[in-house]
Every structure is written in C-alpha cells, then in structure tokens.
C-alpha cells in the first residue's frame, strides 16, 4: 500500500530529516512509528499524502509515485490527522467542518450529508453537530479532526502524535477507535512516543532515530529491547521495565501486557514452590 524506496528528505534550511528510508506498509496493517522528537516521524507522515516530496528516492502510494499526484488526489487515499487539531477549524459548526472537506474533494451534496452523519456518529460527536468546534474539549477536538478525515473514507489513516495532551480516558477511547478502524480493513499509521499506548495496541513498530529506521518489528520485540530503546531516548513500558529487573530469576523479560506478566510470574513462582516441595 505504501512503499518508501531509499527516501531522503532535506528541508530548505539544510536539515536532513529523512536519510535513506526504505520500508513497506501493507494494506490493512496497523503501524506505530516511534522515535524521539526530531527523529523524522512527522516528515515521514507528510510524505504519505505528498505534502512533502522526497529530495531523493521515491514514495509510492497504492503503486503510484507521489511525485505524479497532487496533495488533493493523494489525500483521497491517505488521510492525515495532525497533532494540533486547532490548526483545522474555521467554520461555525462542527458539521460544516466535516462537510467542507467532502465538498473540497468533490463529493455530491447527497453523499456529503450521509458521510457527515456517519462520521459524526462513529466519532460520538452527533450531539454536538451544531456546536462551534472552538467550544469542544481537547478530546472531542481530536475526535472531530479524525471525523473530518474519516468522512471521505480514505484507505490509509495516518495520525501524528494522537495521544499528546490526552488524558487516560480519552486515550482509551482513541485506542478503541484505532483498533476498530483497523478491523474495518483500513491501514492505520500513528506516529507517537507513547510507549504504553503502543504496548496496548500491540502493533507493528517502526523505530526511527535521526532520520533513519533503526528497527522494524512487533511491539513485543521492540518495546522489550532496553538497549535499542535507550539508544533512541525512549523509555521502556513499565511492565517490560519491571520484568527485565527480574530476568535473572527466570522471569520472562519480553512481555508488555499486564496479563502476560501476571501469567508468567505465577508460572515461575509455581516452579519455585515445586522445587522447594521436591
């Protein structure tokens, strides 16, 4: 679905934000793009809908070189939700905000109405449809931003730092929505440094540092690799950090969920009990 072929991107200021990035993301995958600030995550995301075009190398979306398409054309396939939802809003009501994008992309009025209804319902914003977007809470704004993008049903949804500034209840909701979008067959790419969030999503993780991809694998593999994470200034999720402290006693340090950790601890403790009994 998405293919980066040895992509390098240099900003006009001379900063090299991507440096020889090659990666493939398949249709229907759920991917977390991780790395500290300045690792190149946002630059990566902006290549997905052609806001940035590679200085060197190629980016393919659905088999097409992004250089040959406009941002508007690519946006129909890849919807990007940026970190600051406030950067979008300018209309008096939230339903108009959703309709605005659909009209931009050339949908007929009939379709526009249907899609607005659907997107607001899916994001649980129906009751506020006549409200000003400026009066929404932080979590609601984030959901509205997602509703705006979701409305035209892009195959790929990319979200830049969706969890920043969100409280635990909002994060929980966001996690469920991301999972559901993915279950519906959409490719979902989120950039984040929130390890606990990714540990709960259990997705594929692409780890970036200084414009390069330094690791690519399952969350449970990457988020338990202490050395790798600290080289990228990322903290281990607490479950893994706790278990790795006990690795010398025979506990499994490669777990990231509470349930697995409990199961493993109980199992190991039983073994100790057994040896004593024998």
């Amino acid at each position: 679905m998405i293919r980066f072929d040895n992509v390098t991107y240099v900003y006009p200021t001379g900063v090299k934000a991507l440096n020889g990035v090659s990666v493939e993301i398949g249709r229907g995958e759920l991917v977390a793009l991780m790395g500290e600030n300045g690792a190149g995550k946002t630059t990566f995301i902006k290549h997905l809908n052609g806001l940035l075009k590679p200085t060197n190398g190629k980016v393919y979306v659905d088999g097409k070189d992004t250089r040959t398409l406009s941002v508007a054309q690519l946006s129909r396939v890849v919807g990007i939700v940026f970190q600051n939802a406030d950067d979008m809003f300018f209309l008096p009501t939230i339903e108009e905000e959703v309709a605005f994008s659909l009209r931009n992309l050339g949908f007929s009025e009939e379709v526009v109405q249907k899609r607005v209804d659907w997107a607001l319902k899916f994001m649980e914003l129906e009751e506020y449809r006549k409200r000003s977007p400026f009066l929404l809470s932080g979590g609601e704004k984030k959901r509205l931003a997602l509703a705006i993008i979701l409305a035209w049903n892009p195959q790929v949804i990319a979200m830049d730092e969706p969890t920043v500034g969100q409280d635990s209840a909002q994060k929980e909701k966001l996690k469920e929505m991301i999972k559901q979008l993915n279950l519906q067959g959409r490719t979902v790419i989120i950039s984040t440094h929130d390890v606990e969030f990714v540990a709960e999503l259990r997705s594929r993780v692409i780890l970036m540092s200084k414009g390069r991809i330094v690791a690519d694998g399952r969350a449970e593999t990457i988020l338990t690799d202490g050395e790798l994470l600290s080289s990228c200034s990322i903290l281990m999720p607490q479950v893994a950090a706790t278990m790795s402290r006990l690795a010398d006693l025979g506990f499994n340090a490669k777990v990231i969920s509470v349930d697995e950790a409990v199961r493993n601890i109980v199992e190991v403790l039983r073994r100790f009990e057994h040896t004593r009994g024998a």
């Binding site: 409280d167 509470v258 950790a261 403790l269």
Partner: peptide, 21 residues
C-alpha cells in the same frame, strides 16, 4: 473514574490472586 493506575499496581493485584506476594 478512569483514573490512570501504574501498571505495577495491576500486575501486583493479579499476582496476589495466586500467591500472597
């Protein structure tokens, strides 16, 4: 109330169901 709880708390509670650690 959706209060965030450290993961170690959930882990310890889980373990305590089997062993009084």
């Amino acid at each position: 109330y959706g209060i965030p709880v450290p993961k170690v708390v959930s882990m310890a509670k889980g373990v305590n169901k089997y062993f009084q650690v």
